[in-house]
Write a protein that binds this DNA or RNA. Structure first.
Lengths: 185, 185
DNA sequence: GTCTATAATTTGATAGAC
DNA sequence: GTCTATCAAATTATAGAC
């Protein structure tokens, strides 16, 4: 993880908001520059190409997600509580930003993204699955932990899309409840 | 549903392929014209604006999906078999096109789409939920049928995104198996 | 119904002054 | 580090000939 200065972070802040709403291709460099009150040349100073910006954005998003997660699941916390913290993290992000996960968006756009950005998105998903696989009680449902974890990650991201599209957060909550039921009961 | 002539359908064919891969904004009118070997002005002849094209595309996709579904779930077929036909329809589309559902893509892009296109996407999701809610055995899991249905639709679409991003169809199959387990056992 | 031609705007990106 | 200025290309869309 590279450390970014204040302006670069403001640019990524704007990019995160806009791209979570509309996707990578719908957002222009000038869009971002305007939101930060700089000129587009300054954006290119920090991120020479849009592809560079996309990679930096996903990497920052990835790092922050797990920092936040670690903060709310310190040592000794039991598995069910960790699982709740995990899904709550997504819920909070969905409600406060009124937008789906950055990687749900970029994951959908996958084949149309620069290869390095798509790779960063895969990295985020893989890290999610790895984190979950460690937390899930062994053999709780008779499946491989990695597969069980993938089911939860898939359900979470689909639920964000459906809830946003239908404008009904209850869809998200119902899906999460169903996904976690085997592990919380 | 409007009936479209041959060229209009070819344009929508190209649009469906490209937009399922990269989204609404990443595809240009000229892109589509080139794939159909006409000029961009001809595309505008059939679909005056890109928004019109988007709406027509989603509506055709919607209609075809349920026609196909009806064909493989004729009267008298038991509920579990109908559920399998439903998820198989998504799986087939995922494998043969190597791309997620059009509405998974456009649903993610939702807030960044023309309003009429986003509305058409909502219509597709709502119809999916309605169809499923009728097929699910009553109170099988103690929840409202509409909510149970939404859980399945959300899980399916998230699974397509994750499976495509990770390049692993097993993620899709595992998610579907988990989603349908309560209804098939 | 399809074309040529073009308008008006936006895009990602660069050069070079300060 | 931020700017002005600019480029080359691409974008949606329209007018009007055939």
């Amino acid at each position: 993880m590279v450390t970014l200065n204040a302006t670069a972070n403001l640019i990524l802040d704007a990019a995160e908001i806009r791209m979570r709403q509309s996707g990578f291709n719908a957002v222009s460099i000038r869009d971002l520059a305007d939101h930060v009150s700089v000129k587009s040349a300054s954006v290119h100073y920090y991120f020479p190409t849009k592809e560079d910006l996309g990679v930096a954005l996903v990497e920052r998003y990835h790092a922050r997600f797990f920092e936040q997660l670690q903060a709310s699941t310190s040592d000794g916390v039991p598995a069910p509580q960790r699982l709740r913290a995990f899904t709550e993290s997504y819920r909070r992000s969905l409600v406060t930003a009124d937008a789906i996960c950055l990687c749900a968006m970029l994951g959908a756009e996958g084949p149309g993204l620069p290869a390095s950005v798509a790779a960063a998105v895969r990295g985020f998903f893989a890290a999610n699955i790895e984190w979950l696989a460690k937390v899930l009680p062994a053999n709780s449902e008779g499946g491989e932990p990695q597969q069980e974890a993938a089911v939860i990650v898939a359900g979470l991201h689909g639920a964000m899309i459906l809830a946003t599209s239908l404008g009904d957060i209850a869809v998200f909550d119902a899906t999460v409840a169903r996904l976690l039921r085997p592990y919380l009961a």
